[in-house]
């Protein structure tokens, strides 16, 4: 049976602790030997698709089994037919989508006319968005156009994005938009 590269990795992960200390010609200081142990020992591998562009490269996400269960490494999936393990500079930095101190952990809100952004709760943000969408939709909904033809649409709202959505998610998303009566719907739906 041919061994896929991923199976091979699982195999080798078990052998790491042995080979790490015998791989070098001379004995290493403990700190150095530690560095030789692969960082994704004791991790769970999940596949995903890069959200950045239309190519749709496959990725492997290594999530720590211990501690806070955060991702410790993200790299190209060698078994994925699109990229066969390769990635561009943006894709190679994918781990920072999740593990990044520079990203705000909560939604940020700047009230109309306010100068400062403030941190808000997700529940409040969702409710606020829903409230405003409904108010705008109710105010702008048009039943008939100037010729008296039935249109049932709202033209004061547009939808743009999101590149991180896949085909199926996009379908649900546009279905909601159309139910609201939006006609200006655009998306980078290429993956």
């Amino acid at each position: 049976m041919p061994v896929s590269r991923r199976t091979f990795l699982k195999f080798t992960a078990g052998a790491v602790s042995c080979s790490a200390f015998t791989g070098l010609g001379i004995s290493l200081a403990p700190a150095m030997a530690q560095a030789e142990i692969l960082k994704f020992q004791k991790t769970t591998i999940t596949t995903t698709v890069c959200c950045y562009c239309a190519v749709g490269c496959g990725l492997l996400v290594h999530t720590a089994d211990e501690g806070k269960g955060r991702s410790v490494n993200v790299e190209g999936d060698p078994d994925h037919p699109v990229n066969e393990g390769a990635l561009c500079a943006k894709g190679a930095a994918m781990r920072q989508m999740a593990e990044n101190k520079a990203r705000p952990p909560k939604p940020m809100y700047r009230a109309a006319g306010a100068k400062e952004w403030k941190e808000v709760e997700w529940d409040w943000a969702y409710a606020e968005i829903a409230k405003r969408v409904k108010a705008e939709r109710d105010a702008s909904f048009t039943l008939k156009n100037s010729k008296g033809e039935t249109v049932n649409r709202t033209e004061t709202m547009v939808s743009l994005g999101s590149a991180a959505l896949d085909n199926e998610e996009c379908w649900s998303y546009q279905a909601i938009q159309r139910a609201l009566g939006l006609v200006h719907i655009e998306h980078q739906a290429r993956i």
């Binding site: 960082k39 490494n73 993200v74 790299e75 990635l87 561009c88 500079a89 894709g91 190679a92 930095a93």
Partner: peptide, 10 residues
């Protein structure tokens, strides 16, 4: 520059 970023990443 995928190599440059992958190096930093790993």
């Amino acid at each position: 520059r995928g190599c440059q970023v992958a190096c930093k990443q790993w």
